[in-house]
Computed example of a mutant assay.
Amino acid sequence: MEKQQLEVKTPFYKKLGWVSIGLCGLCCSLPIIGAIAGISTLTVIAAYLEKIGILALGAAGILFIYTFYRKRNQAKSCADSCEVNCDCKTLPISK
């Protein structure tokens, strides 16, 4: 007696059901995957922007000090010239 192997075929509707379950799982997990990828991307961008921000803060400090001393020296030169030459002072008009 020969053994006959029965080939069991999965019906089409069962295959379609498994595919539908897989697609549903993928559809439900995509927002979670997108949020994780988005947060990761923002973290990497923020790390670079932090370094750039520190450099910009240093540059702003240097420019502030430069402008402060420049204006201070200009104010001293004007005060010195007014003390030496009093032509820059306004006199009251008397009638």
Rank of each mutant, 00 (worst) to 15 (best):
R72L: 11
K9M: 02
S29I: 00
Y13C: 02
K15L: 08
G25S: 09
G38H: 01
G61M: 06
Q74A: 13
K14E: 10
I65D: 15
I32G: 04
F12Y: 10
T43P: 01
K71Y: 14
S20N: 10
A46E: 08
R72K: 12
K51L: 14
F68M: 11
K51T: 09
K15N: 05
G22M: 00
A46G: 08
L30Y: 08
A37I: 02
C27L: 12
V44W: 08
L6V: 14
E7H: 06
L30T: 13
I65S: 15
L57F: 09
I32R: 03
G58W: 07
I21L: 14
T43M: 02
L30P: 01
S20I: 02
L23Q: 04
L16S: 13
I62Y: 10
S29C: 07
L57R: 10
K71M: 14
T10C: 07
L57W: 10
A37L: 13
L16F: 04
I21P: 03
T67N: 12
G61S: 09
K15H: 04
T67I: 14
G22C: 00
T41P: 00
N73D: 15
I65V: 15
I39T: 06
G17R: 09
S20P: 01
S20G: 07
I33E: 05
K15Y: 02
I21K: 15
E50G: 05
